Computed example of a mutant assay.
Amino acid sequence: MKTVLTNKNISIRTRRRALECYIEPIFMYGCEAWTISKQTQKKLEATEMWFLRRMLRISWTAKKTNDTVLEEAHTTRLLISKIGKRQATFFGHVMRREKLENLVTTGMLEGKRSRGKQREKLIEGLTDWLKAGKSLEAIEATKDRKKWRTMIAVKQGT
């Protein structure tokens, strides 16, 4: 895809569309189960900017800010919000099923906790992304499918 994405004869809009259709789905495979920390979020944003810089043929040594690159590409940063939307949709599906996946996702399994710093849970990252406050609020919101979809849509619009 490098020859298509870096071809100056193809409009930037078409090249961006090719990136969204062919590269991003491969890149985001399985993102519904990722726990995204601040460090992971920075890496994902850097990867998104790397794609755009390659597409615009901007050298990594060129002193162009990310904002100017985004302006040239006529876009904004969308990757993190796309991943958040996919995670929220999947989380709502799992919570409405009320099976084993529900117990695993919410972390309500019996047993001892491991030593050291505890790993971040999917629900904690999701409540941060949705700015829902408490994880219990998010879990309760998943029961009402229309309410959950509007929560996701409102967050997607920001």
Rank of each mutant, 00 (worst) to 15 (best):
R15S: 08
R17E: 05
A18V: 10
L19G: 05
C21T: 09
Y22W: 11
M28E: 05
G30Y: 06
C31T: 00
C31N: 02
C31Q: 00
E32W: 08
E32G: 14
E32K: 07
E32L: 06
A33D: 01
W34H: 04
W34T: 00
I36H: 00
K38T: 08
Q41D: 06
K42P: 01
K43H: 13
K43C: 09
K43T: 09
A46T: 07
M49V: 02
M49G: 10
W50A: 10
F51S: 07
R53M: 04
R53W: 03
R54V: 00
R57S: 09
R57H: 06
I58Y: 06
S59T: 06
K63M: 01
T65V: 03
N66S: 07
D67K: 15
D67H: 12
E71I: 11
E71H: 14
E71G: 10
E72D: 11
H74L: 09
T75A: 12
T76N: 08
I80G: 13
I83K: 08
K85M: 07
F91W: 08
G92L: 02
H93F: 13
R97H: 10
R97I: 02
K99R: 10
L100E: 06
L100P: 02
L100N: 12
E101S: 15
V104F: 09
V104Q: 06
T105G: 00
T105Y: 12
T105A: 12
T106S: 07
G107R: 10
E110D: 12
G111A: 11
K112D: 06
R113Y: 04
R115M: 08
R115F: 12
G116V: 02
K117S: 09
R119F: 01
R119C: 05
L122D: 00
